[in-house]
Design a protein around this nucleic acid. Structure first.
Length: 109
DNA sequence: TGGTTGACTAAGT
DNA sequence: CACTTAGCCAACC
């Protein structure tokens, strides 16, 4: 493990793997934890390649708690199913009680 | 090497 | 209050 070999993507994966089950976070939160909130797009871009990684990408949503990335999953509701399986309420692609379930890496780690 | 892309966010209309 | 515009930054072609 050479941290210097870890690109932004790998860092995102490392953080995403630490998201507790039944909790969620936002792209911006991860981006901010890695340095800058402005890199939120890069986080999303990274998750796009997380398919082959052991990353719980379904626990990462946008700042509104909306499942914006569900279209990148296999099914149309797979992302929601995974979240509900962990006890997260999801209605109309939106996480219920999002603020309570929100997991901030810069505070929780 | 340079230009395009995007699972975002904040601010403006 | 909902939609539009602009800024951002790393990876990909």
């Amino acid at each position: 493990m050479k941290p210097e070999t870890l690109g932004f993507f790998e860092k995102v994966y490392e953080v995403a793997r630490q998201i507790p089950s039944g909790r969620v976070t936002s792209y911006g939160a991860i981006a901010k934890y890695l340095g800058s909130t402005k890199s939120a797009r890069i986080v999303g871009y990274a998750m796009n390649s997380s398919g082959e990684k052991d990353v719980p990408a379904h626990r990462v949503v946008n700042r509104k708690g909306l499942l914006t990335g569900k279209h990148h999953f296999e099914g149309t509701n797979l992302m929601q199913q995974l979240l509900e399986n962990e006890g997260v309420e999801v209605v109309d692609n939106q996480i219920q009680n999002f603020e309570a379930l929100f997991w901030d890496p810069s505070k929780e780690i």
